[in-house]
Design a binder for these strands. Structure first.
Length: 449
RNA sequence: CGGGGUAUAGCUCAGUCUGGUAGAGCACUGGUUUUGGGAACCAGGGGUCGCAUGUUCGAAUCCUGCUACCCCGACCA
């Protein structure tokens, strides 16, 4: 993409209403624009990141056996009356009427809709297990939206729903999502720790929140330091096999949010020098809720014994529009964002330090063409800005590799590659740039880790 | 919803106390000179001062009402 033809409204000055670093940087890097309280437009650069995140989530959900679909944003109130949640949900649900005066709502979540779809089509235990998911916009009328897209009213969420014959089968479905989540965050470069979470009225041990540590996180969290060093299941993990050793390993060490913390237990189980007490951002939650909706909404299947049973369900959410700021909270410095390659809006940026000079232009044009052919997604700063401004913008928007092409280097047939994260630079012959860059970028795509 | 605050150019803000018809920096447009870490100079364009009412010869400024947004708290992917 040529920057001169792109839409990247970067801000030099810090917008006054942005308090936390991710919100400030998202605004300054031209990723989002607020339209109203808790409502954001995703500008091209931000949307590219969102799409990258979505792709990773979809790949990992698919690997774990979940099946993608898409449900509507607007739902009928009738389904919610059936589950009993229409009155229970309160003011957080955005309600509206259609032209026939029917009660409608903007979905804050999709248990009712998916259960309705399930019961209409699934009759036999032979069709189980089933896990259906979608990535769709949700609306929750938060009392106080804040921190940009970290807590917005409209947000993009991946929500998966599993259906099983009984609790033990449901546990297997839960484990699949648990493992899939570990991999999903890992591929984005995030260290997300599963922590015991509230299970609501159902009880049991089957709910975990996935937390990324960050000073600006909204929850206080407590865990064993070794949780930060654990090995992530590999891409070829056998989802049809027994996942309990992995889950047992990941749940054997103490980890809980402030809502669930039992200080005595924490201090008993974790040696003092291994105790981590920090702030964290919740980037996902997995949850088993049994027959809560299947009973109230009559979602049953016929078992092998010919008897009808209500299916056991779980739901599994990842907030995509929250992961973006979570990533920035984790990866930034005083100059701007530092994207991991796997989620970067562009993998490299060509900085033409002297646009308009023929030698520089042709070297950059040629390089840009080569990068495209090599399958590297590059931004090409071909604008007339000064060198300093180009460096600053490149640092701000956080593209992992900067290819610096100036009259000095072009004369001697050389370019400079700057690694945004480390600041390291290497000088390299112009005709070697693409080869070298591929070498650097490909392992960092993390698609087969 | 309770408490606190803000609203003036695309952005960050001054001007409001003490009423006299709107400014700065950055950004933008044209030109000249520049160009390896947010260039310089010259010349320009751009604002019904959040909305509505009232007071006044005259309101960004004073009164009243409203709206939007932000911060702290309770709630949440």
């Amino acid at each position: 993409m040529r920057l001169s033809r792109y839409f990247l409204p970067v801000l030099k000055e810090v917008p006054k209403d942005a308090e936390i670093v991710s919100h400030r940087l998202m605004l300054r890097a031209g990723m989002i624009r607020q339209q109203a309280s808790g409502l954001y437009a995703w500008l091209p650069l931000g949307y590219k990141v969102l799409r990258k995140i979505q792709n990773i989530i979809e790949e990992e959900q698919d690997r774990a056996g979940a099946i993608e679909m898409l449900m509507p944003t607007i739902q009928s109130a009738d389904l919610w009356r059936e589950s009993g949640r229409y009155d229970a949900y309160g003011k957080e649900m955005l309600r509206m009427k259609d032209r026939h005066d029917r009660d409608m709502l903007f979905g804050p979540t999709n248990e009712e809709v998916i259960t309705d779809i399930f019961r209409a089509s699934v009759r036999s235990y032979k069709q189980l297990p089933l896990n259906l998911y979608h990535v769709q916009w949700k609306f929750r009328d938060e009392i106080r939206p804040r921190f940009g897209t970290m807590r917005s009213r409209e947000f993009l969420m991946k929500d998966a729903y599993s259906f099983d014959m009984n609790k033990e089968e449901a546990r297997r479905s839960y484990y699949k999502m648990f493992v899939s989540y570990l991999r999903t965050y890992h591929r984005m470069g995030l260290t997300a720790i599963p922590m015991k979470a509230e299970t609501g009225p159902i009880g049991g041990d089957l709910s975990h929140e996935f937390i990324v540590l960050a000073d600006t996180g909204e929850s206080g969290v407590f865990c064993h330091a070794d949780m930060l060093e654990k090995t992530i299941p590999a891409f070829d993990v056998d989802y049809d096999g027994d996942l309990s050793p992995i889950v047992d390993d990941w749940t054997s060490l103490y980890a809980a949010t402030e809502d669930m913390i039992d200080m005595e237990e924490f201090e008993r189980e974790v040696p003092e020098d291994r105790r981590v007490a920090a702030r964290g951002i919740e980037v996902g939650q997995v949850f088993y809720f049994g027959t809560k909706y299947s009973e109230s909404m009559n979602a049953t299947v016929t078992g092998p014994d010919g008897k009808e049973v209500a299916v056991h369900c779980g739901s599994y959410g990842i907030g995509l529009t929250r992961i973006v700021p979570a990533l920035i909270e984790a990866f930034h410095d005083e100059n701007g964002i530092i994207w991991p390659v796997s989620v970067a809006p562009f993998e490299a940026v060509i900085l033409n330090l002297k646009s308009g000079q023929e030698a520089c232009d042709s070297a950059c044009d040629s390089l840009y063409e080569q990068l495209r052919n090599a399958g590297i997604d590059a931004l090409y700063d071909d604008t007339g800005e000064g060198a300093g401004a180009k460096f600053s913008t490149a640092d701000l928007i956080g593209i992992p590799y900067q290819l610096i092409i100036g009259p000095r280097g072009v004369k001697s047939g050389e370019a400079e590659i700057k690694h945004r994260a480390s600041g390291e630079r290497e000088t390299i012959a112009l005709d070697q740039v693409v080869t070298r860059l591929k070498e650097l970028i490909e392992p960092e795509r993390r698609d087969k880790i």
